[in-house]
Design a protein around this nucleic acid. Structure first.
Ligand SMILES: [Mn+2]
Ligand SMILES: [Mn+2]
Ligand SMILES: [Zn+2]
Ligand SMILES: [Zn+2]
Lengths: 144, 144
DNA sequence: GTATAATTGCAAATGATTTGCGTTTTTATT
DNA sequence: AATAAAAACGCAAATCATTTGCAATTATAC
């Protein structure tokens, strides 16, 4: 549980600002992400919502959120997708995910590392590097 | 095409050394990896072999190769699996893939970077880091 | 409020990867 | 070299995550 004052965040307006219509489901979905301090898998999303939602609807919403700069994807150790809130670096028009992720190989928690700077050279032996995916696998504090 | 003297490599013996039986298909498969200087997708493997092989057989062989330290998996930009020869750091008993990969987002070529050293701390704010997956995306020399 | 556009739910489709199983090929033993 | 045990093969069917079609519902724009 994150220490955000959820009362003060209008998730409907947040959706509108990012070009998404505000439906009750999508408001609950974006709120769920804001209440979690880690990434979520599809099943965790569905379990996190009381009412039963269709999986296809969830996938469509997650993809819409991603295309509009609200969340981003992180692959877990089995290459399955997890979803995490975008950090400050992202906007509806531009996604930038050059930050690293910590991934617990036991419970699959994921944490975005905003302060971890990677020494990427733009040009690596003629190869032009434009983006990086960096995943540090190991054990989170709870799983050691 | 890599500059290896393929005449001097006995791929059958290589398989045996790694606990795999030498079948004509598996000998061709390991040779194909040695002739390529990049990673291969399933379809590239199948196209790289004249005779028609069953996909299930290829998957089984690739998994067997991986479990025995001959190749390792690298996810492409769509999270599909590609396969690349293991570097010196690997043995039949231990896999170590803390090296970074260059991944061309146009042609999907992948290159292992043995000399790229990442500043990983063993312990990152209480999170114990035991492995890292680092993918640098961009454009290879041919695709710019 | 009415028209237009986006979202939902349910079922069916996809696409990558795996599995079951009977047959064939390899490996280990005599 | 013959033979038994183990591993690999080929083909079809199964799995599993994710996507798609479509008709019904809900939201946005005028
Ligand atoms: Mn992140
Ligand atoms: Mn590699
Ligand atoms: Zn954990
Ligand atoms: Zn390329």
């Amino acid at each position: 549980m994150k220490f955000i004052d959820e009362e003060n965040i209008d998730f409907g307006i947040m959706l509108s600002k990012n070009g998404l219509s505000q439906t009750s489901f999508r408001k609950k979905l974006i709120k769920l992400f804001h209440l979690s301090n880690s990434s979520l898998s599809i099943d965790e999303v569905i379990n996190g919502l009381h009412n039963n939602v269709d999986k296809a609807t969830v996938y469509r919403a997650l993809n819409a959120f991603e295309e509009n700069g609200l969340i981003h994807k992180v692959p877990d150790k089995d290459n399955l997708l997890r979803y995490a809130l975008c950090q400050k670096e992202c906007s509806p028009t531009k996604h930038s995910h050059n930050h690293a992720h910590l991934l617990c190989d036991k419970c699959n928690s994921t944490y975005c590392l905003n302060d971890f700077k990677i020494p990427i050279e733009n040009n690596y032996n003629g190869f032009i590097v434009s983006n990086s995916k960096i995943i540090l696998e190991g054990r989170c504090v709870d799983c050691q």
